[in-house]
Design a protein around this nucleic acid. Structure first.
Lengths: 233, 233
DNA sequence: GCCGGTAATTAGGCATGGCTAAAAGTATAT
DNA sequence: ATATACTTTTAGCCATGCCTAATTACCGGC
């Protein structure tokens, strides 16, 4: 099995690990545990350990790994992870805008294809789309050089009551949740106000201009990120 | 290594074998030898034998294989091969028409992506293109159900002298040859007449309406297929 | 400081799909 | 009929990347 055409030193599997580390380490770039990776990638922790050792051993390395203390990405690793993430989000935008995918359909195909996008294809897609800044779920698309715009977003379930929030992004992992949001008019850019005194599992919210209140399950409210009104990207 | 999402029983490797068998067996669907496969796939004959045995053993099988006597595709195998071929050619057309690839650029990306095209993506691409009949090199695109339009094409190097021929398709395997054809105005639909008495390694031809004669290397003339004037697809 | 529980690592295995080298089969020419 | 040449298959190996089971390391509570 020849490791297919990828960035040097990378494979489909490696890309998945790097992407997972990027996501799990968050903006503070904290160390990520084997367990967290195993859960995220839906494989066993033992397999993770093996892979991390192999990754850390190769030169130039994508990760810095200390036994029993988790991994973090090196500069090179972060670059590669961002590139794959860029592929993913560009693909989602492309499938949605050009090939009539609904926003709950884009994830799976993007996830599969992201590993096989050449530089050329990446550039042509970006050009065709006019260098978009976000994917259909509102996530920011890393730039070609690895630069990532920053944004202070917060889970809707953690937003203060009574203060208007604007949806910045929603999770793309659960198609049925996305369909429900669609139905409720919850999409990036929509303003939401959480009713005072509903800090429970479910939230009572006002959506956009609508006069009525809607109850959001925790499943939904923890799949929605918001920023303060007036400057969502 | 979990065999990735594909048609049941298939993998990227298997797809490559099936496609190779389809191409090498020609319209008569003759048996294909291990050696021919090895050469086409650029791997060792021993590896081919191993794969063929595995393929022939699985039920339902994609190939019929007799030791020392080559393989041929079963109905199921042919179906899968045609599907991958459809992916490839649709992708080439798509990259060319929508993403501004030149015709010498499309092959590599199509070859890599053809394995990862979902039914949905296949359909959306086909719809976007208006169900095209050919790829940019003139090759016929199998229909969704596996039906393949037929066409009596012949290598230019075997065409009779003096009789007008119309280019039906050109090989997409050699980018530099494609660029040369481009330069000479040799593309599907172009009429060509081989000068009498040039049945050599190279051919002297008239291209389209041009009054002059051009000498085509064997490399070019054996990368061009033609049909008789007046009814190319 | 020690104990227990959770997390992480090691050890050993398996399927895939390549490889080389050696053996066996097929085919052709004498 | 048989020697020689070529093709094909077998045997055995390797890397990838996953698995389970068994072991070891870390950490918080006492």
């Amino acid at each position: 099995m020849p490791p297919r055409y990828h960035a040097p030193g990378s494979t489909e599997s490696v890309d998945d690990y790097l992407k997972a580390i990027l996501e799990l380490s968050g903006p503070e770039e904290a160390r990520v545990t084997s367990n967290a990776l195993a859960q995220h990638l839906d494989i066993r922790a033992a397999s993770v350990t093996g892979m991390l050792q192999k990754l850390a051993a190769q030169k130039p390395s994508f990760v810095k790994y200390e036994k029993h203390h988790g991994v973090r990405l090196t500069e090179a690793g972060k670059m590669r992870a961002l590139e794959v993430l860029r592929h993913h989000r560009l693909l989602e935008r492309f499938l949605h805008d050009f090939l009539d995918y609904s926003w709950d359909e884009v994830h799976d195909d993007a996830e599969r294809l992201e590993h096989f996008i050449s530089e050329r294809l990446e550039d042509r897609i970006a050009a065709k789309l006019g260098d978009p800044e976000t994917d259909p779920h509102g996530h920011l698309i890393p730039e070609r050089n690895g630069a990532v715009p920053v944004r202070q977003e917060v889970l809707l379930s953690k937003w203060a009551c009574g203060v208007p929030a604007v949806i910045s992004s929603v999770s793309d992992r659960d198609p049925s949740a996305l369909r429900e949001m669609e139905r409720l008019g919850l999409r990036p850019g929509t303003t939401v106000i959480v009713e005072a005194g509903t800090r429970n599992a479910s939230l009572l919210v006002r959506i956009g201009d609508r006069p009525d209140r809607t109850r959001l399950s925790q499943r939904l409210s923890s799949a929605i990120c918001v920023i303060s009104g007036g400057n969502h990207t």
